[in-house]
């Protein structure tokens, strides 16, 4: 269980997160919705301390991540998480196989002789075969995301953080990625936090949706509750309309 309590993050004078409160339940998929620049990526980067929070608490199984000062203890906390970066963040000086095997050396006891077997297995899990020898520059957007996901899965994390997993992909590939996220929940029972602004994907995969707007969680609920809500901000976002309170606010700025 991850509890986010009154989380704040400032970049200089700009307050990106203002008292965010959210509970992420084990084994469930929590989608965090929000427009560009709403602080979604900042929020999940705070979870693994890639960005330092300015205030508040993040409790992972009861331990406050924001209070850890030791680099060794921090590395131990990060082991619980897998992070799927928006553009994959594959190491471009390595092949696909080396990328997928990378975390095995640091986070697992798998002997190096077994790396090829694990790589094959994890690539198969994301629907890829015989791509180990390719360089990341030779992959399409969807393949990059899937290889990146295989790299995350190789180290068996308890919780996977997905940073806009379907952004930049065609609708079919987006659906394949959404299916994969669902599949991993059912097969491996991992906790998933998905940052997205893709409504189709969110409605398909989420057990719970949280809507982040101007640094605050404006609404939390099931996909069904989001479909039926009267909240004008959420309604506008869900329908993808340019008319509504969100744009009015932008125009005022």
């Amino acid at each position: 269980m991850i509890e986010i309590i009154d989380l704040k993050k400032n970049f200089g004078p700009k307050q990106v997160l203002k008292d965010v409160n959210l509970n992420i339940e084990d084994g469930k998929i929590t989608c965090i919705l929000g427009g560009s620049g709403s602080g979604k990526s900042t929020l999940i980067k705070c979870l693994v301390r890639l960005i330092e929070a300015s205030g508040g608490k993040i409790l992972v199984d009861g331990k406050d991540v924001t209070k850890i000062n030791s680099e060794v203890k921090l590395a131990a906390i990060r082991r619980h998480f897998g992070y799927l970066f928006q553009d994959g963040a594959l190491f471009d000086s390595m092949t696909v196989g080396e990328n997928v095997a990378f975390g095995l050396k640091y986070l697992t006891d798998v002997p190096p002789a077994d790396y090829p077997k694990v790589v094959k297995e994890k690539l198969a899990l994301v629907g890829l075969k015989d791509v180990e020898h390719l360089n990341p520059s030779e992959l399409s957007g969807g393949m990059r995301k899937r290889v990146s996901l295989a790299r995350v899965l190789a180290v068996n994390p308890k919780c996977i953080l997905y940073d806009e997993p379907t952004t930049g992909l065609d609708p079919i590939m987006s659906d394949i990625i959404s299916e994969l996220i669902l599949d991993l929940k059912h097969k491996l029972g991992v906790t998933s936090v998905v940052i997205t602004h893709d409504m189709n994907s969110a409605f398909k995969i989420a057990d719970k949706i949280a809507f982040l707007h101007e640094g605050r969680i404006l609404m939390e609920g099931t996909p069904e509750e989001f479909r039926r809500t009267d909240n004008p901000y959420v309604k506008q976002f869900v329908s993808g309309s340019s008319h509504g309170p969100i744009q009015m606010k932008i125009m005022k700025d």
């Binding site: 980067k45 693994v48 890639l50 680099e71 590395a75 990060r78 082991r79 998480f81 897998g82 992070y83 970066f85 928006q86 553009d87 963040a89 594959l90 190491f91 471009d92 000086s93 990378f102 975390g103 050396k105 640091y106 986070l107 790299r151 180290v155």
Partner: peptide
């Protein structure tokens, strides 16, 4: 090399994969 890794989140990826 390191700069390109920094702007493409590869440095962040190192943290999440057990090293830094």
């Amino acid at each position: 090399h390191i700069g390109t890794m920094a702007v493409t989140e590869q440095l962040d990826a190192l943290y999440t994969l057990g090293t830094n």
